[in-house]
Every structure is written in structure tokens, then in C-alpha cells.
Simulated scan of single mutants.
Amino acid sequence: MTGAVEKTGVARTLGYLAWVVVMAFFFANAEIQIEGGAGWATSLPTWRVENSLWLDIFWGGRAMTGYHAWVFTFMALVFLAPLAFNGRWTWRDAGLAVAGLIVFWVCEDFLWFIINPAFGWARFNAVDAFWHKHWIWGAPVDYWGGLAVALLILVTRHWRRAK
């Protein structure tokens, strides 16, 4: 591929990620209206599984709730919808969808704290955000791990295209 074509591919990916951040902003605001200051659905009328080895391994030790089971599945379907509607399931497209979904959830969760009147920057910490059990470098470990996976997917996606 020529440099111009690859730059266009990277520019399109960056445009897509900007759109993902805008979607995360709107969803964070909707979730603030739903949860208020009670994060991780702690005051919602939903089922909860609090302690499980599987939650520790796959969910960062957070509770699994009916609210999160439905909303996470719904958003996965939203990000995969273009593949379904196009009738084209390629690894590149699926990778972009998965990377977008990861970036969406990291940004949405962070924005939930920052723009939530009950939290803000001052309460973005392990004590006040007790449902995030593991923190490093001032943020939940999930953020760093998720962004690393998304970056790996995107770099691989563009590197393989350039070959």
C-alpha cells in the first residue's frame, strides 16, 4: 500500500475513535441519569452476583448485575451491527469493532466519574470508586489493560494492511 492510502486508513480509524468517544460521552450522561451517584448499579433494582472466582478472573472482582449484563451485551451488539448489516465478517472489521467497544467502555466509565456531579475528578480514586478493585497509575487497571489491548488490535490491523 502507498503511504497516502495508509494515512487515509489511519485517519479513518482516528475519526472512528473520535466518534466512539462522543458516543461514550452521551452514554455516560445517560448512565449518570440512571445511576446518579450510586455507581456500579448499587442502588438499582437489579440482580447482583457479588463474589465469585469467575468475577475475579474476568470482571476485575466487580459485581455482575442484571443491568450490566444487559447493557454490555447491547453495546457489543451495537458495535458489531455494521458487520451484520454489511454481511461481511472479516478479522479486520471485527478487530475494529472490538477495539472500538473497548475504547468506548474505558472512556464511558472515566467520563461517568468526571462529569458526574456526585463524583468529579476529586473522587476518581480507589476509595470512592470502590467497585474498581485494582488501581495503578491513578486509574483502574482495567483502563490500562483495555487500552493496551485496543491499541494492539489497531496497530496489528494497520500493520497487516501495510504489508
Rank of each mutant, 00 (worst) to 15 (best):
L14Y: 14
L14F: 02
G15H: 06
V21R: 03
V22N: 09
F25E: 13
F26T: 09
F26Y: 10
F27D: 03
A28Q: 02
N29L: 15
E35M: 13
G36T: 10
G36D: 13
P45N: 11
W47G: 02
V49K: 00
E50K: 08
L53F: 12
W54V: 14
D56R: 13
I57H: 05
G60I: 04
A63S: 10
T65S: 00
T65R: 00
Y67L: 02
A69T: 04
W70R: 14
F72H: 15
F72E: 10
V78G: 01
V78W: 15
V78S: 04
V78N: 06
W89D: 02
W89M: 06
R92K: 11
L96H: 09
L101T: 00
I102V: 03
W105K: 15
E108N: 06
E108W: 13
D109S: 13
F110T: 11
I115M: 04
N116H: 04
A118D: 05
F119W: 14
W121K: 12
A122Y: 13
F130A: 12
W131N: 01
H132R: 07
H134W: 12
W135T: 01
W137E: 11
W137P: 03
W137A: 15
G145T: 01
L151Y: 03
L151A: 14
L151V: 12
V155H: 08
V155T: 07
